[in-house]
């Protein structure tokens, strides 16, 4: 046995274990920190569940909404545009008439500020990357930042 090589082997195996553990932890936390394919995929999957629980009854399974009542979430700047505005709609609700592609929508959307930062990030990432939409992910950190400066009602 070549004892000179032992420290290197030990060092290498420790490094391997640590990175492995780190990877595992990261996976468990769904870490959407970097927009890696894995992070995006996990966020979309989690967001789909949030959508099914809190959004589908008004915005519908195809996210095309209900004429005159609940607005569509497909190909609209409300969804694909400014992230802060979009996060605020979820946090504060939406109670004004909105016109999208010549159609007005008037139903009230309740505040969903009871959702966790991660849940809001996931559902918005899901909506921005589904139904024909394609836009960057939204992170829990971004939601947290908007929530911190959001008006207190």
């Amino acid at each position: 046995m070549d004892f000179k090589k032992a420290p290197i082997i030990i060092f290498a195996s420790v490094l391997f274990t640590v990175t492995g553990l780190q990877a595992q932890t990261r996976h468990k936390a769904k870490a959407p920190v970097k927009h890696t394919t894995v992070g995006l995929k996990a966020s979309i999957a989690a967001g789909q569940k949030v959508f099914a629980q809190y959004c589908v009854s008004c915005h519908q399974a195809d996210a095309l909404g209900v004429p005159h009542m609940n607005p569509p979430l497909v190909k609209t700047t409300y969804v694909l545009g400014d992230k802060t505005k979009l996060i605020k709609i979820v946090l504060n609700g939406f109670n004004e008439d909105v016109e999208i592609n010549g159609e007005t929508y008037s139903n009230s959307m309740a505040s969903h500020d009871f959702l966790k930062d991660q849940e809001i990030a996931d559902v918005l990432t899901f909506v921005r990357n589904s139904f024909g939409n394609k836009a960057s992910a939204i992170t829990a950190a971004q939601v947290k930042a908007v929530r911190a400066t959001n008006k207190k009602s």
């Binding site: 394919t37 995006l40 995929k41 979309i44 999957a45 789909q48 399974a61 195809d62 899901f126 990357n129 589904s130 139904f131 394609k134």
Partner: peptide
């Protein structure tokens, strides 16, 4: 890579459509 991304984005849509159907 791109295709895979697209697929994962479309999967939920397909799932919902299948559920409705």
């Amino acid at each position: 890579m791109k295709n895979r991304k697209l697929l994962s984005a479309l999967l939920p849509v397909a799932a919902i459509a299948a559920f409705i159907l």
